[in-house]
Design a protein around this nucleic acid. Structure first.
Lengths: 339, 339
DNA sequence: TTGAAAGCGGTACCAC
DNA sequence: GTGGTACCGCTTTCAA
């Protein structure tokens, strides 16, 4: 392992000079600069993160977290490991400010961002896909704040990093799975949160892409449930009444429980249900054999990873090595859904 | 964040004394000891891992890795992220000695362990489940070497930590999946590496546990392929000739490619194949629709995690918070198998 | 433009 | 028993 001290000795300069070169702080004579750079390269110098972390304490690293998590069980699985990771990183001197909100209110999100912006050097956010929010995030980036979007990426935003899933692939996986586990002649109904959610549209697109090539496939309707179980219940009930030949349901975001209750109410245990996320109510419905499979988007990894990317940047001085960290869309059935 | 220095000031003692108390190095008057402990507890003192890591350099932390990986594609997926993690940790001053072997030769494994034992303070090993090896590992533990078993745990071994999967659950998941994707009346043939591999037996057990309750299920035979594709090919061919009504194949460890080739040779594309691990040859067979699904045991996480557990112990001074780190058995189909 | 020195938190060793 | 001190690697500040 090579240290700054060794490079300094080899080049006949002081550690301070080496530091100035390696971190582009200027004020070094070109020849010396050149010499230091070459030596560092030749010896394959890699900074020791422990040294960096200790020194970084003086920079007072603070990260803000803003997630529209209230009333959304999925985010419990994101936030728990994120909190655990935060606890670990707080031992290095990093601080975390937690904020949450309910629903996708642009106004509210903007004002919380403003509030956080003045006291953090990094932000983890689950952003609403709206121009005003995007503009605000770009603004933070311009001011030197490190921005990580989680679970939901936004268009044309200059955020440093996105942590989430590939929605299109998620839809394809769900479609292909349904095709495998349902009898031929699939007549599927679809429920999604909202057409205005880009991720939901992409999942639907991937799903249809796979199934439309399938013999006997019929789409019985696509309905919006605003990620609400009650609305989900009503719409599913209606769908089943209008199209009794429906034999499969695909739930694109939340509302699986509501849909499952409608299936139970109609006593339609022949229906195959594929949903997203393995929240507790979904696991219960899997045990009752109402829901057959769920696509798992690694919420825990998402939470951990987002916090880690920020820590590595603020404390260890690493820029993320990817602009996007995409988690796999996994298939979970009753047998591998629990710990 | 609380530091040793602060505790020292509050207690009116020196940092050295606080260190002696918190690390049980003795030589502290009971009253002082008590006071320091109470203060640390009250302030919820947590050591800063960066400080520890820096100081740990003087201990010269070295870890040895010994995996019977040669000729086993599965371990490529374990070793690559393990190497990447090692590279990262080497920047903290930890050193890694890499060893590999081919097959499960007790003699050879023992001699490599002996060779490593004298130069490492930790060992990551994929052990052969044999008394002589187990004894040797227990010996290392007694000598203060930190031992992590990976992918294959061994009975009654005092290793500090196991990183791998739950074999029984893997078998159950495979069985339940087969039940979902194959038409009713499953006539399944099974290929396993060896009856003497505990993990393989457990997967078979989980598989049968689920399927034996299934109407119309028949087991057409269980054959050993020694994890070899050629043997796998021969045994599968034979099985299909003796039992032409076989309509499903379950491959418990390696040899999926050999079995798939036999299926192709017999032109039996109606057969449903469920296998373990998504090695390149398996992915190719999935693209050709010979293999329908694979159980994925998170090889990459296994590699990363094992290295991390060792690093956290040697460099940060954390004991692992679990004796077993079990990865989920995931279901992979063509649509979610690739990046 | 540069070097020297202090400090981040923890550990180890020496002198008393 | 105990305090003082040096050191691990990196950053920052100050003086020259």
């Amino acid at each position: 392992m090579v240290t700054i001290k060794q490079i300094a000795e080899l080049c006949g300069v002081s550690r301070g000079t080496v530091d100035r070169v390696l971190n582009n702080r200027g004020n070094v004579k070109p020849e010396k600069r050149q010499l230091v750079l070459e030596t560092a390269k030749k010896l394959n110098y890699q900074p020791n993160p422990a040294g960096k972390a200790l020194a970084a304490r003086k920079k007072n690293p603070v990260v803000g977290v803003l997630i529209a998590s209230e009333g959304v069980p999925f985010f419990d699985d994101v936030l728990l490991p994120m909190r655990k990771a935060a606890l670990k990183y707080e031992n290095y001197g990093m601080k975390v400010l937690w904020r949450s909100m309910r629903g996708f209110n642009v106004e509210e999100q903007c004002s919380i961002i403003d509030e956080l912006a003045s006291e953090v050097n990094a932000l983890i956010i689950n952003p609403v896909n709206e121009p005003r929010v995007i503009e605000k995030l770009n603004d933070l980036v311009a001011r030197g704040i490190f921005v990580v979007t989680i679970n939901n990426d936004v268009d044309s935003c200059r955020r440093h990093c996105y942590v989430g899933t590939d929605y299109l692939q998620g839809g394809r996986t769900a479609g292909a799975l349904l095709k495998m586990i349902a009898p031929p002649g699939i007549h599927a109904g679809v429920l999604m949160g909202s057409q205005s959610m880009q991720g939901h549209r992409q999942r639907l697109q991937g799903f249809l892409e796979v199934l439309e090539k399938t013999e006997g496939f019929q789409l019985m309707g696509v309905h919006e449930n605003e990620d609400d179980d009650m609305i989900s219940y009503e719409k599913t009930r209606q769908l089943l009444e209008e199209h009794p030949d429906t034999n499969a349901l695909f739930i694109i975001s939340s509302g699986a429980y509501g849909a499952a209750r409608a299936v139970m109410a109609k006593n339609r245990r022949d229906i195959v249900m594929v949903v997203f996320d393995t929240i507790p109510s979904t696991i219960r419905m899997m045990r009752d054999h109402i829901i057959q499979a769920a696509i798992y988007q690694h919420p825990r990894q998402q939470g951990r990873r987002a916090m880690q990317v920020v820590f590595d940047y603020l404390v260890n001085g690493f820029r993320p090595d990817q602009k996007k960290y995409l988690m796999r869309n996994e298939i979970r059935i009753l047998e591998n859904v629990e710990e």
